[in-house]
Nucleic acid binder design. Structure first.
Lengths: 153, 153
DNA sequence: CTCGTTGCAAAGGATTTGCACAAGT
DNA sequence: ACTTGTGCAAATCCTTTGCAACGAG
């Protein structure tokens, strides 16, 4: 402490790129920063944010670059993605694994302690030899608000 | 017992359609039959199967009809769908809720006893007021085979 | 007959790909 | 310099929609 550390994991990015002979580009930094800043980042929302940050004139990374770099960042182990229903891959930084919980009525997404799955994970490992990837899990269902709304019908 | 019952839930289909003033068409019967027969039915695989069944000359339901009817069958409560990763919604008959487990390396999908999630479901209900929809859950991870393969590297 | 359904074709949205040029190292 | 990365445009893939003809009730 005392150092002016940036919140974004820039050093890991630089290191891991170098380790593979890949290059640290402005676009890669920006995409990672966007995923870090956004809570439930979709390729679209990331693109939008980058366009905002760049202003109406400044150049923002191309959509294809966003996709390519999200894939790369995931290979580097810096971000993870989950599918929350239809065509919406959601990216988040890999640091703290979340478990995503999605309400199918209102679409609300919240993050939950992954420990909640420990029991299920153990049983799957024991009974099926399957190792659950907790960071990628999305649970669908009804949130409190929507549940009450439908109960009163 | 004794009756020659078909395995496909045709009567429920007819009933539920009639109850809503909708019509029982050959296409609807065929789509439901295909979902029943296929284990992890995607709109695509359903279309393919219907095309097979019809032969190279016979008329198979159009893709758009497959989509429309899957949606309808789901509204009628006869089938459920889940998203197993990217662009592949998987349909199955609603009778016995499964929990889907997908290996992210080999893509293998298997069905598991939903009871495995009971603990997690209870905690989510108690701590977050969230009711998990077990039929829609897909768990990602590594299957035994792929895990061993990667351990030996 | 009447209105829900279908097929066809075209529209859409999201993601990927080929390629020449730009840019890290 | 050498090779990777980027932007752009076109190509795909999956899904939805408009509309005239069709067919179940």
């Amino acid at each position: 402490m005392g150092h002016d550390h940036v919140a974004t994991p820039e050093e890991p990015l630089a290191e891991r790129l170098r380790a593979r002979g890949l290059r640290l580009t402005a676009q890669r930094r920006r995409v990672l920063a966007a995923v870090t800043a956004l809570e439930h980042a979709t390729p679209d929302s990331i693109g939008a944010r980058l366009r905002e940050e760049a202003g109406p004139d400044g150049p923002a990374p191309d959509t294809s670059t966003v996709y390519r770099n999200l894939e790369l960042l995931e290979r580097l182990g810096l971000v993870w993605h989950t599918h929350l229903g239809k065509g919406a891959p959601v990216y988040h930084v890999a640091e703290h694994p979340h478990l995503h919980v999605v309400c199918s009525s209102c679409g609300d997404v919240s993050s939950v302690d992954p420990g909640i799955l420990d029991g299920a994970a153990e049983r799957l490992a024991a009974e099926h030899g399957f190792t659950v990837d907790v960071g990628h899990v999305a649970l669908t269902g009804a949130c409190r608000a929507c549940r009450q709304r439908s109960e009163s019908s």
